[in-house]
Design a binder for these strands. Structure first.
Lengths: 326, 326
DNA sequence: TTGAAAGCGCTACCAG
DNA sequence: CTGGTAGCGCTTTCAA
């Protein structure tokens, strides 16, 4: 930077302005500095800029696993809005291990990121305090309800699952099955599912808990329905906490010659792009994975004054998408 | 840092050592400094550390789209090895737009990342030069063949697709269809597919090009096979450049009552976890998406002396996985 | 519109 | 094993 300042006959302060606030520099200086910079092949050191300017232009996001379609959709949304505004995305995965979360957050805070996007609401008191203490904007996602650490965008997992249960009940099903992961969000969905069933005066659902979202969810779903049906042959409908599991169920039914939805109705959750293409087309609960990401980014950039200020809490809702499978 | 140095009665240099090279600090000092740090709730500023130490502990990766299962697998592998070694991952997407690539790379170089992982080999001369000039380790992935900018891990798309063609030919198919994206890797696969067919003295394949990998590939695959079959009813086998497209083909056949593989054989590419679960189970070409990521990370950390040094070029190969669909 | 200079918080080198 | 100190490359007042 010093070199280019000397060559262009200006001070390094001016060079800095050329890159950061070109509007305050005279057109002539602007051009000459840019020319020299290009000649030197100069690339501004953003690390130094971050330190001096006390802003990193980096937003960090933490998801359980990036290989899960739903979270990669959210990350895609986040990444889109961030990059449109000159921000970068630092990505961390917890692989559903709570201890990883604290470690990741500490690292990211140490990196002085300009914002933090988390999956789920942080329960750990100490961690919440540390996050708050850092003063950086945080948005928690994919949940609603209890008090967030800072900002929140998502939907009610309970309500969404209850709506699914009600759909099944409305169709006359009396004996319901539930196949879901062990993570917090799946548990919330189980709660909602149970409540709706109880409210309708029906018998408790038959529950199968499986490992949390993974690339092999399809396989897991197939195994789960096999086990469930073996133990409870009376089940007439199965609700799955994600579409990949539901797809596994559909496939297993096809293999066993179980007609869907006549013998067994099946519902998914998320409304992934494949849901509509399956045969039979999957009835599912639509939630806005991608929009969660874009809104999270907007909330953070809103706080920084880069975009219009957003409310601190956003309920994106859900809707039951009725197709052929239930 | 100054505060905690004063409180602990040591110099800031010692405080720095406590966090970076604890092994050279006496146990007593170590403990007292750590205690004070904890009391103050001190989080080391990694940005300052990066600037002073001339290393960022960040590796950047660029993929076309993160929502594609294959790339998210690679990113997962990368992320795993990186985080095991105290490195963070900065993620960028090009959405298949070449101009985005240069912009992203410039930003990442400006960030002085410790390594760069790219999808595909960089063709732009000027860009290659800029990357090389930065001196940071770069690994290009998902291709093989032409000379990489620096390091390379992948497989031959041509050879892999040729193997698929040979498999189909061996099964007696004479009229082959190809459904693939418009990106470079799909084009390479088409080349290989064509060569093998030509070598066998068969007629040119019937080709359908579709938009590059997207969450809606399944839908795209269904549409493509419908169009292809309408125009060329004689096709007895279809090779798809990814499993999601193949899944769409399978589903469309099911919808139309076309028996697979008897009336139409179908092959995929990638061997995603779902491939084995489909009905009929998908015959596909297995490539190591996850391993590409782990090896890329190892190559970079090998260069930095963090891990054992790796060769600059790694061919992960491929294999035809014969299941039911072809 | 531009320049001078004071740091940003930390690392690494050199002594001791 | 520990301390002193010179930067790392840039941003940002404050003045001119």
């Amino acid at each position: 930077m010093e070199d280019i300042a000397r060559e262009a006959g200006v001070s390094i302060a001016t060079v800095s302005r050329v890159f950061n606030q070109p509007e305050v520099v005279s057109p002539a200086t602007l051009e000459s500095v840019r020319k020299v910079a290009a000649k030197f092949g100069y690339t501004p050191n953003l690390t130094a800029g971050s330190l001096a300017g006390n802003r990193s232009k980096i937003v960090a996001a933490i998801v359980p696993v990036i290989t899960s379609s739903i979270f990669s959709e959210t990350i895609d949304g986040l990444s889109t809005v961030l990059s449109e505004n000159g921000y970068q995305l630092l990505l961390g995965q917890t692989w559903y291990r709570e201890d990883r979360l604290a470690a990741l957050i500490d690292t990211f805070l140490g990196r002085r990121v300009d914002g933090l996007v988390l999956t789920g609401i942080t329960r750990d008191k100490a961690l919440r305090k540390r996050i708050r203490g850092s003063g950086i904007p945080v948005v928690e996602t994919w949940e609603l309800g209890r008090s967030p650490t800072d900002m929140l965008v998502g939907f009610s997992n309970q309500d969404a699952a209850a709506a699914a249960a009600r759909h099944l009940i409305d169709r006359g099903h009396k004996s319901l099955g539930f196949i879901g992961g062990m993570d917090i969000r799946s548990t919330e969905r189980l709660d909602g599912f149970r409540s709706a069933i109880e409210a309708a005066g029906l018998r408790e659902p038959r529950v199968a808990r499986v490992p949390s979202p993974s690339p092999s969810s399809v396989l897991v779903g197939a195994e789960a329905i096999r086990a469930l049906l073996a133990q409870f042959p009376d089940i007439s409908a199965a609700f799955c906490t994600n579409d990949m599991i539901a797809m596994g169920v559909l496939l297993e039914c096809q293999r066993q010659g179980i007609p869907v939805p006549h013998k067994l109705a099946v519902m998914g959750f998320s409304d992934l792009p494949i849901a509509a293409s399956l045969v039979p087309a999957l009835t599912t609960v639509q939630v806005s994975a991608h929009a969660i990401g874009t809104h999270a980014a907007q909330m953070i950039l809103g706080r920084k004054g880069i975009l219009e200020r957003q409310p601190n809490r956003l309920d994106l809702g859900y809707s039951v998408v009725v197709r052929e499978s239930a």
